[in-house]
């Protein structure tokens, strides 16, 4: 298992191959549907963004509220495909990594290859487990969106699997074939 740090540099992304399991330590940002819409609107209108997208890693998550004494509530990945309409724009502006779960469109994969970005999956449905890897959480933008607000997270040994690497190799396409017994 590889240990990597976030934000991701180009060389970190280039060192990752689909199928690698990694532990991520460092700073990542949360954003899902509504936050992506606002980020892209800000870019289209030339307004400043709430955080620096260069080399940034976005985690597609809408956590549950923390109980007293907790940093964050359950915080597993949401389905990435809903962010496909926005992800290429963010990669054009420096986004280097995405963490979520589920398939991506070809347009996203093409953009990842062009901009040297990586897509990782965290275990969907393991929200309680993953919350323990989040040491700090601070809401930095769009607080009115509640769970969809943008948070800056400090993570330690956050487990993820490289699904699509910057060459365009896709674990979701290659892995199930090895176990398929489907009769055509």
């Amino acid at each position: 298992m590889k240990q990597i740090t976030a934000p991701f540099t180009q060389s970190i992304v280039e060192s990752l191959t689909a199928g690698d399991t990694v532990l991520i330590t460092g700073t990542i940002y949360t954003a899902r549907d509504a936050a992506h819409k606002r980020l892209c609107e800000a870019i289209a209108e030339g307004r400043p963004l709430p955080f620096d997208l260069r080399d940034a890693v976005i985690y597609y998550v809408g956590p549950t509220p923390p109980q007293p004494g907790q940093v964050i509530g359950a915080a597993g990945p949401t389905t990435s495909g809903r962010m496909d309409a926005y992800a290429p724009t963010l990669m054009e502006h420096g986004l280097r990594g995405m963490i979520g779960k589920g398939e991506r469109t070809q347009a996203v994969v093409d953009s990842m290859k062009k901009h040297t970005a990586v897509y990782l999956a965290a275990t969907g449905g393991a929200g309680a487990l993953l919350s323990h890897c989040i040491l700090e959480s601070e809401t930095i933008a769009y607080e009115d969106l509640g769970t969809e607000a943008i948070r800056r997270l400090t993570v330690k040994d956050f487990p993820a699997t490289v699904v699509i690497d910057c060459q365009g190799n896709n674990l979701y396409e290659t892995a199930p074939a090895a176990y398929s017994r489907r009769k055509v």
Partner: peptide
């Protein structure tokens, strides 16, 4: 991981999934 997640959720009253 899913079994461990279930244990943590139960013991800390944290939702199983966000």
């Amino acid at each position: 991981q899913l079994l461990e997640n279930g244990r943590i959720a139960r013991e800390t009253a944290t939702p199983i999934c966000q």
